[in-house]
Design a protein around this nucleic acid. Structure first.
Lengths: 136, 136
DNA sequence: CGGAATCCAGAAGGATACTG
DNA sequence: CAGTATCCTTCTGGATTCCG
């Protein structure tokens, strides 16, 4: 391999001044990546691609998530501007969650990734079984 | 938004037979997604796009990862068939890590996602600051 | 219904030391 | 160099309860 612009030299795409390397310890990009990459964040974003959701509907959609974790996840996503939260003050309360423009872009990539994963699931499962057979 | 087959009614897109839903609790896809989405997995895969790496070189590239976590991460990725581990029995020992074909495909998507995130970092940071200003 | 707060078990993860 | 093993700390995350 090593078909790359020499990782040692910093020949990153010159048209894009912003390097903001995710490999750096205290990089904002890495923090953002962790927000998105979280166990439940991906599923929440993926669900919201289907359309808006209310809290408990989303909770039902994302099987296995606890109230606490969903709330926490949605807060983080809202904070980073990926999800919009709209409160309708009626009784009983009603809160709609939807993707922002940025959130939709990101979710789209995640969908691509997920589809690739789903399509490769047989391959992955086989590799896993083979590995476990070799070891323990 | 809501440009989708009505989430409230359960009219899942009939044109797309493959659901194999990541939303299901015990879905293999979800497990695979978690392997890939892990905090260090993304960074390891991203690094390996640049070329092969040896253990300690990779450790240096992915700032902040501990020996334990890197080893653990690489094991998981190898197990799922995303990373190949090649041992060269010399002294001192030498082990090369590289992406498999599947690993490369996945890493490519991750790179797209990361670049989008890096490009949006200003937006995200601003949203975050605004949110924190409103709340605590 | 939406969600904040508390409590607590268990998993994640880091530092260190030791082996091949 | 490339790990494994051990210990110990931190934090995730579930269950429960209460409030708007």
């Amino acid at each position: 391999m090593s078909a790359v612009p020499t990782p040692s030299s910093d020949a990153i795409d010159p048209s894009d001044a912003l390097v903001a390397d995710v490999f750096a310890r205290n990089c904002d990009s890495r923090a953002a990546l962790e927000t998105v990459g979280g166990k439940w964040s991906i599923l929440a974003l993926l669900a919201l691609v289907e359309g808006d959701y209310r809290f408990n509907a989303l909770r039902r959609r994302v099987e296995g998530v606890s109230e606490k974790m969903l709330a926490q996840t949605l807060h983080a996503l809202e904070r980073d501007g990926l999800v919009q939260r709209e409160v309708v003050t009626v009784i009983p309360a009603r809160v709609e969650y939807s993707l922002t423009t940025l959130g939709a872009e990101i979710a789209e990539r995640l969908r691509g990734l997920t589809e690739l994963l789903e399509g490769s699931i047989d391959h992955i499962t086989a590799a896993r079984a083979a590995y476990d057979a070799r070891r323990g």
